[in-house]
């Protein structure tokens, strides 16, 4: 399924995820076991630092290619905080803070308050649904100080995590923070909360595109293998047309992922990310539904691995804003620009 545009980095990721993420690993992750071996392999290849600029300890991978890793991760339902680690690294390096090693996560919430206390900072508050909040080695927190965004880097132990999960049983923990941080752990952020949210949404677009690619491949294969009425079910026109719809939704999600990646590379173009997340989210729902329909009861069983992907599609379409939220933003943007500028706005995306 390698795209012609897949580079060495993406091929490496494809191989690495194929070797380290298996259905038992995915099932264990659902039970709350962090897949340390998979993380170690990923970290050894340096994939988690792909979005970190060269000057801050990264390898100078172009942003679009770095984000392409997430499409590959999506294909494998990677049960690791790769997106979150990339996001945290981007946030920290954007503020001139060092990017620590290990799995990272990000928290941003209006209820978090950051205040100077002598030559240190007090960070206090809570954030819901922090991805891998319990497993992260460090946490990058975006908080507001008198109307300006600041980033704080928290070492492990500086927060509590009450376990929670999304619909795919990926860790989404409620964290509580009340900690004193040294001055060097806090810096003004180059990235505001809306941009952070949008970058997260863009990442989900790429993950959705990858998961859809994979379920399309799986579903086409299944339709060729499963025989009923004396022939492969893929010979039935009704099934073929459903698969054609699945393929076209996947194509749309791939395009949305590409739009999103370019919008991040250009410094977070919000309308483009809004369009991408709204479209990819819709494709996720339609695609997952067809994949299940074609797989019959087998795909509804825990034993078959389709659900590791479809549950993630259902989770990711809602995370960092679902279709309604992003359609609203884009719709308000287009309406405000007005009828005479509608086309100009669309081509500008």
């Amino acid at each position: 399924m390698n795209d012609a545009s897949d580079t060495l980095l993406l091929e490496t990721a494809e191989r690495l995820f194929r070797d380290t993420v298996s259905p038992p690993v995915l099932a264990a992750a659902e039970r709350g076991e962090f897949p340390h071996a998979a993380w170690a392999a990923l970290a050894q290849a340096g994939l988690h630092r792909a979005l970190v600029p060269e000057g801050a300890g990264g390898f100078g991978v172009p942003v679009i290619e770095a984000l392409g890793l997430l499409r590959v991760a999506g294909r494998h339902a990677l049960p690791l905080p790769l997106a979150e680690t990339m996001l945290a690294g981007w946030l920290l390096s954007g503020a001139g803070l060092a990017v620590p090693d290990g799995p990272l996560s990000v928290a941003a919430s209006p209820t978090l308050t950051l205040r100077r206390q002598g030559d240190r900072w007090n960070l206090h508050g809570a954030a819901p649904a922090v991805a891998w909040g319990r497993d992260a080695a460090s946490l990058a927190v975006l908080a507001d100080v008198d109307g300006q965004a600041f980033v704080a880097l928290l070492p492990s132990g500086a927060w509590t995590a009450a376990p929670g999960q999304n619909i795919a049983r990926e860790p989404r923990d409620a964290i509580g923070i009340d900690t004193l941080l040294p001055a060097g752990a806090v810096a003004a952020s180059g990235i505001g909360p809306v941009q952070l949210w949008a970058a997260g949404a863009a990442m989900r677009c790429l993950m959705i595109a990858g998961a859809l690619e994979r379920i399309t491949a799986m579903t086409v294969q299944y339709a060729q293998d499963r025989v009923q009425f004396g022939r492969p079910i893929g010979r039935f026109q009704a099934v073929q047309h459903n698969l054609a719809i699945l393929a076209s939704q996947t194509a749309a999600a791939i395009a949305a992922g590409d739009i999103a990646a370019e919008a991040v590379a250009d410094g977070i173009r919000l309308p483009a990310i809004a369009a991408a997340k709204a479209r990819a989210g819709e494709a996720a729902g339609v695609g997952a539904g067809i994949a299940h329909q074609v797989h019959g009861a087998l795909g509804f069983s825990y034993e078959h691995s389709l659900h590791f992907l479809t549950k993630r599609l259902w989770a990711w379409r809602d995370e960092y804003g679902g279709e309604a939220a992003w359609s609203l933003l884009l719709g308000q943007h287009l309406a405000a620009a007005g009828a005479d500028r509608l086309w100009a706005e669309i081509t500008a995306i």
């Binding site: 749309a252 739009i259 479209r279 308000q332 009828a339």
Partner: peptide
């Protein structure tokens, strides 16, 4: 867009934004 005006209802903005998202993706 003309008929909706610059500040449409939330429901209308969502529907418009969704169509915009489709067009942007198709154009790509």
């Amino acid at each position: 867009v003309h008929a909706l005006g610059p500040a449409p209802s939330e429901r209308a903005a969502i529907a418009l934004g969704r169509l915009g998202a489709h067009l942007v993706t198709l154009r790509r």
